[in-house]
Nucleic acid binder design. Structure first.
Lengths: 234, 234
DNA sequence: TATTTTTCTTTTGTCCTACATATTCAAAAA
DNA sequence: TTTTTGAATATGTAGGACAAAAGAAAAATA
């Protein structure tokens, strides 16, 4: 069976460079020594000497960790371990045009799962202010059935839901998944024509948030997303 | 209000290095030119010249992209755009000991959301073989109430659930979240003593998979995870 | 002519040296 | 005691050199 993921069929190029090795060795070192945010790292030259590689190679590895936010460095003062941005690496590669089909499909499904699972968090955290804001979004939305507007309000509504969970990481994560979701839906439409729309509207969902239970909400959300669920391949 | 996230309180060190700039410029360039996997990139020296920086700086930036799997390079042949590993960056920073409390809490909740949302995918994809394997896990589990074993089977059971969704990315993602989940639960126990256990057991969940609906399953899962949900802060 | 072998060429990978720059720390001056 | 000055130091950037791999071209052989 030929997988749609190229990297599953073609064997990976083994060539590990020194920078690759040093990168993992550095991460192992930080873990083993139980470095904590704020702790000072050895200086570049010391690392280079200890690992018996050039300062260049060490800098390439450090540059990678710096990109992930794992370390910060200042002239003279040296480098310190920092608190990495958990979604930074994610953000950089989240481009529908360079991800393979399999991964796109996986991410699409991942977002469906998130939508179905966020009810409890939502009911535990939402405020009256949130509900008012969500209502405004729904109000503005009426009669916007044409493409660009529809998509815009779709994003506004669901984005607001995530934000109402009070979970920043969660919200950022979903925002990153959005382009993928849109892309997959668009590709789908190119092939099978315009997608159906679920029976449950945004207003229905809003009403349930005001006076319903998480169970009701989940049930309604399933209905709202049903066009997507129907297309799930086995 | 002082956030628990250090980086929200202390302003970030502005110092952007050339490598930072070149990294983003390169990514912009790849996007703008609509490079696709397999396409050849300009060579290092050309990039250095075009950007008017040293080859060193270019290499540091390229090293970052290489880490994310965005590019691959071979001697003489040059560099090509590759299909990045969406979770690679994630994997590297997923360490409970260096992430801040706020992020850990967010990730903990994210896993709860995933558990609550996976029902539909599960029912759409699971096979008889899967159910048999899950049953074996549940059978082995009986009478293992002591700590190390309990945790082991907890992981085995839930891990199998994810795997049964047939979504590789999803499964990998949850596996990465596991250490965080364990860590947070352990920290909780240190403070408040051993956690309560939900009324719904793994066997109950298994039975529902055999002859229940996604709705039933979600309901049961909520009960199974109730000790965690009860601790959700507002 | 076709095919194999050898040599050349090119591009990445690694090392080295040098110097600019920012920042700390301590000594010197007010 | 406070302020200013200056030396020391670690990172950031530049540029040159060469090894290694691999494709391309040239030469040698059947």
């Amino acid at each position: 069976m030929a997988s749609k993921n190229l990297s599953n069929d073609i064997e990976k190029i083994a060539s590990t460079t020194m920078a690759d090795v040093v990168e993992t060795r550095l991460r192992e070192y930080l873990k083993k020594k139980a470095f904590k945010p704020g702790d000072a790292l050895p200086k570049e030259l010391e690392l280079a000497e200890a690992l018996d590689v050039s300062r260049n190679v060490v800098r390439e590895a450090l540059s990678r960790l710096r990109m992930l936010g794992m370390i910060e460095s200042r002239k003279k003062r040296g480098m310190i371990l920092a608190e990495p941005d958990i979604l930074g690496g994610f953000e950089r590669v989240m481009d529908p045009l360079i991800l393979d089909q399999k991964t796109l499909k996986d991410l699409f499904e991942l977002r469906l799962v998130l939508e179905m699972g966020l009810a409890d968090l939502l009911y535990a955290r939402m405020t009256d202010k949130d509900l008012k804001e969500l209502e405004q979004i729904v109000n503005k939305e009426v009669n916007k059935v044409q493409k660009p507007f529809k998509v815009k309000y779709e994003i506004a509504f669901h984005g607001k839901l995530y934000q109402m969970t009070g979970n920043e990481t969660f919200t950022r994560f979903q925002n990153m998944l959005l382009p993928v979701f849109e892309y997959v839906v668009n590709e789908e439409e190119k092939i099978n024509g315009a997608a159906k729309v679920g029976k449950v509207t945004h207003r229905d969902l809003l009403d349930l948030l005001k006076s319903g239970s998480p169970e009701d909400f989940r049930h309604a959300m399933k209905e709202h997303l049903s066009p997507h669920f129907e297309k799930l391949s086995r």
